[in-house]
Simulated assay, not measured.
Amino acid sequence: MTSLQKPTTSHQRLYNADFAQWVAQATLLLQQGKFDELDIENLIEEVEDLGKRDRRALCSNLEIVLLHLLKWQFQPEQRSTSWRGSIREHRRRIARILKDSPSLNPYLQQEYQDCYLAARLQAADETGLPLKTFPEECPYFLEQALNEAFLLDTE
């Protein structure tokens, strides 16, 4: 099969029926250097999805950090160890992704304001406070949001 051919029916069937087995088969074919037997079309799609997955995970984790920082700042009477733990856990997740893929740092900076806007909406929903309570521009620098030592007004 050339790189321009569609996957064979058996490749497509396996891809649709048992993804884990399809991955195992593709891995074996790669290890054996049998590149002409690979399901190139689906392999390309899966490799592209790997990159998207990390970008989505970065934004998702950052939104949670920002959400809890907003709740921490604007609902001090509701502060909990759960919020603190969530901030810490999601910072760690971001750090792990960036350690594995440092080239995603610029992406995170580029998406920071959009992540904040999503967190702002979620904070209003979860706290019951008016949306205008939360600043339109993120009140934290990215470096603060990711800094393990940064937590507003801690005891």
Rank of each mutant, 00 (worst) to 15 (best):
T2M: 08
L4Q: 07
K6Y: 14
K6E: 12
K6W: 11
P7C: 00
T8V: 03
T9F: 15
T9L: 12
H11L: 10
H11F: 06
R13P: 00
Y15S: 00
Y15H: 12
N16Q: 12
N16V: 07
D18W: 05
D18C: 00
D18Q: 01
D18Y: 03
F19I: 15
Q25D: 10
Q25S: 10
T27Q: 02
L28E: 13
L29I: 01
L29D: 03
L30D: 00
G33D: 05
F35Y: 14
D39A: 06
E41G: 06
N42E: 04
L43P: 04
E45S: 07
E48W: 08
E48G: 07
E48T: 15
D49A: 15
G51S: 10
R53K: 15
R53N: 11
D54E: 11
D54V: 13
R55W: 02
R56L: 12
A57Q: 15
S60T: 11
S60R: 09
N61A: 07
E63F: 08
E63R: 13
V65E: 01
L66F: 01
L66T: 08
L67H: 09
W72C: 05
Q73A: 06
Q73V: 05
F74W: 06
Q75D: 07
Q75S: 11
P76K: 00
P76R: 04
E77G: 07
S80G: 14
S82C: 05
S82W: 13
S82Y: 10
S86K: 08
S86H: 04
S86W: 00
R88Q: 11
E89W: 09
H90W: 12
I94M: 05
I94Q: 03
I94W: 03
R96C: 08
S101E: 15
P102E: 06
S103M: 11
N105L: 14
N105P: 05
P106S: 03
P106W: 00
Y107N: 02
L108C: 05
Q109A: 15
E111V: 07
E111S: 14
E111K: 14
E111H: 09
Y112A: 12
Y112P: 05
D114V: 00
D114P: 06
D114A: 12
Y116F: 09
L117S: 11
A118L: 11
A119Y: 00
A119Q: 02
A124R: 01
A124K: 02
D125F: 02
T127V: 01
G128E: 02
G128I: 08
P130K: 04
P130C: 01
L131N: 09
K132Y: 15
T133I: 08
F134H: 02
P135A: 03
E136M: 05
E136T: 06
C138A: 05
F141V: 14
F141M: 14
F141A: 15
E143K: 09
E143G: 06
L146W: 04
A149D: 15
F150S: 12
L151H: 01
L151P: 00
D153K: 13
D153R: 13
D153T: 04
E155L: 09
